[in-house]
């Protein structure tokens, strides 16, 4: 470890304790431990195949962990299903945008509110007044979110018909619609132009400004160094470094393993 834990850090909102994830012989994550403080941008970096996406999948319950434990607000979430973890307040974007292409931009965000709302089959079929009221609230709040993310003019477009940048924005908007305690972003700037990347950086910083805790997986070092509060470096599923961006840039092991000529 490079620098000692920041003494001013609040208590961790998410904590991984010695987690291990295996795929048929391959150990994608080995005895990984870290703690995430609230209202920060914590970035996970590392070369291809380091286990970054696997980590996000382990946190969200998509992959089971074979050993260790993940604590969210002090309670273990290991073994919970993805929908339960989402409902507790951890939502995400995906490395390859996973939008609901058969729906409009607005509907995608409305789905994002699923865990905060309650109407079920029968209320929906019968259009009961309570269901209508909830539906109006969902629709209004979703429009507010689209407005915030600069997508309101595309509310009625099909999700598959908007630009790549907008699709990534929409995916984050959908995740934010759940009002998560932690937002996980898997390479939100991949495939974007320099200018689009700047727009994405502003968007992420804007969320942090409002107090959102963010775990960011990102390859682009310029972006990562510019916006992160804290970095965790993975290599072959092992944490090889952790600390503030300026400390990481000085760390030799990290430079050799990953940053190489880039810095």
């Amino acid at each position: 470890m490079i620098s000692p834990a920041d003494p001013h850090m609040d208590t961790a909102v998410l904590e991984a304790k010695n987690i291990t994830v295996r795929f048929e012989g391959l150990e994608a994550l080995s005895r990984l431990s870290f703690a995430i403080s609230p209202r920060r941008i914590v970035s996970i970096i590392g070369p291809n195949g380091a286990g970054k996406t696997t980590l996000l999948n382990a946190i969200t319950g998509v992959y089971p962990i074979h050993a260790g434990e993940i604590l969210f607000q002090g309670k273990s979430i290991s073994g919970l299903k993805p929908f339960q973890i989402a409902a507790l307040g951890i939502t995400r974007s995906f490395q390859q945008a996973q939008l609901f292409m058969n729906m409009t931009v607005l509907e995608n965000v409305m789905v994002g509110m699923h865990s905060r709302t309650t109407s079920g089959f029968f209320k929906g079929m019968l259009r009961l007044p309570s269901e209508r009221k909830e539906e109006r609230i969902i629709s209004a709040q979703s429009r507010d979110i689209l407005d915030e993310f600069g997508l309101i003019s595309k509310a009625a477009d099909m999700a598959g018909h908007i630009s790549i940048l907008d699709q990534r924005r929409l995916e984050i908007a959908r995740a934010m619609a759940a009002r998560p305690k932690i937002l996980l972003l898997d390479e939100p700037a991949a495939g974007l132009t320099i200018r689009e990347m700047e727009a994405m950086a502003d968007l992420i910083l804007g969320l942090r400004e409002k107090g959102q805790t963010i775990i960011l997986v990102e390859h682009n070092m310029r972006l990562v160094m510019a916006i992160s509060d804290h970095l965790i470096v993975l290599h072959h599923g092992v944490k090889i470094g952790e600390g503030r961006p300026e400390d990481i840039q000085k760390n030799r092991q990290v430079i050799e393993a990953y940053l190489g000529k880039k810095v």
Binding site: A86, T91, S115, A175
Partner: peptide, 11 residues
């Protein structure tokens, strides 16, 4: 349409 995304959205 997308089961994984649906699950991670809380469904």
């Amino acid at each position: 349409h997308n089961e994984i995304a649906a699950r991670c959205t809380g469904i």
